[in-house]
């Protein structure tokens, strides 16, 4: 049973800016929230390999192919850092993966959109990784020590992801009319789904208050979204890309960019599993996991055999 005294002490530690470590006392609800949020984050990194992986074999040059391979490998690494961090709370990796592949665990809805051209790969780097950086820079200060450290590690690597994307967007945007059209089309399709990556509006985000009270998150979804928009408007202007929102206007009073209504119906629809690629993504992940089962078993058998022969030799 959690006593009020324990809860107060815990809150005092959070308020003092202390990090919570795996063996420290924590409210059960805190543990559950970190597991939910962190594993969702990990699943997103893993499924995030698919939209871009789709284009590795068709990269326009060897250089771009090497870059894309390195980036996709990083995403796998980010998933692994996060799973390790979450496992410190006493959940097993196998169970987390199980909930993701066969249960109800969620991942970011942005990965349920298709990548129709190589320009999508460029725009994902610029916008999607750009949005992820805004989120993760804050999560690097999260109150749960292992989760915060995993995010610090991720942030160190993520800026290359964004920069390679933005560089390619700039190149396409200053290229032939067909290239310009291709990159603008990709921006038009990815702009709104990217804004949805920050999660529902504060008024529709039931978890937010608790997460902020415990400093699992440091900012609300709307604050982070605004920060991303303010940054991205300038970046779009610099490369002559139009963001597909006629209501985008600088507000002298607030010092921020006002933006139009986000199509939340679409967001909830994709979250429910009805996005263009939901089924395809889950199918690909399940197949990858199941087709890899023999590798996991073989490695275990080989380790057992080596151990046995070592014991017999001694």
């Amino acid at each position: 049973m959690e006593t009020q005294q324990q809860l107060d002490n815990f809150q005092a530690r959070i308020d003092a800016g202390e990090k919570i470590e795996p063996k420290d006392w924590m409210p059960d609800r805190y543990r559950q929230q970190i597991i939910r949020m962190g594993s969702q984050h990990a699943h997103s990194e893993i499924v995030g390999m698919l939209p871009e992986g789709n284009w590795i074999g068709r990269a326009p040059s060897l250089k771009r192919k090497l870059v894309l391979l390195a980036k996709v490998q990083d995403e796998a690494g980010h998933g692994l850092y996060l799973y390790s961090a979450i496992e410190t709370l006493g959940v097993s990796r196998a169970d987390l993966i199980d909930q993701y592949l066969y249960g109800s665990a969620k991942y970011s809805s942005i990965f349920n959109y298709p990548t129709l051209s190589y320009a999508d790969v460029c725009v994902i780097g610029w916008l999607v990784d750009g949005a992820a950086i805004v989120n993760q820079t804050k999560l690097a200060q999260s109150s749960y020590g292992p989760y915060s450290r995993a995010n610090i590690r991720i942030c160190r690597e993520e800026s290359f992801h964004k920069k390679q994307g933005y560089e390619m967007v700039a190149k396409l945007a200053s290229g032939t009319p067909a290239q310009r059209k291709m990159v603008q089309d990709a921006v038009n399709r990815f702009w709104w789904p990217t804004l949805m990556m920050f999660g529902p509006s504060d008024s529709d985000s039931p978890n937010s208050a608790e997460l902020i009270k415990w400093k699992v998150k440091l900012n609300t979804n709307d604050e982070l979204r605004q920060h991303f928009i303010d940054r991205t408007v300038m970046e779009a202007e610099a490369v002559n890309i139009t963001l597909p929102d006629p209501d985008l206007k600088f507000n002298q009073e607030t010092g921020h960019w006002d933006y139009g209504d986000i199509p939340w119906d679409e967001f909830w629809d994709v979250v429910q599993g009805n996005g263009v690629m939901n089924r395809e993504r889950m199918k690909a992940r399940r197949e990858a996991h199941e087709n890899g089962a023999w590798v996991r078993k073989a490695a275990q058998a080989y380790a057992r055999k080596k151990k046995l022969s070592r014991e017999q030799a001694s």
């Binding site: 690494g77 410190t88 490695a299 275990q300």
Partner: peptide, 23 residues
């Protein structure tokens, strides 16, 4: 650096290089 799963020590060392020392 963090932790990881591996079948044995040799496997762990290789995974550690790939997961924690790509740069």
């Amino acid at each position: 650096a963090g932790s990881l799963h591996a079948a044995d020590a040799e496997n762990a060392l290789q995974n550690a290089r790939d997961a924690y020392a790509r740069r």
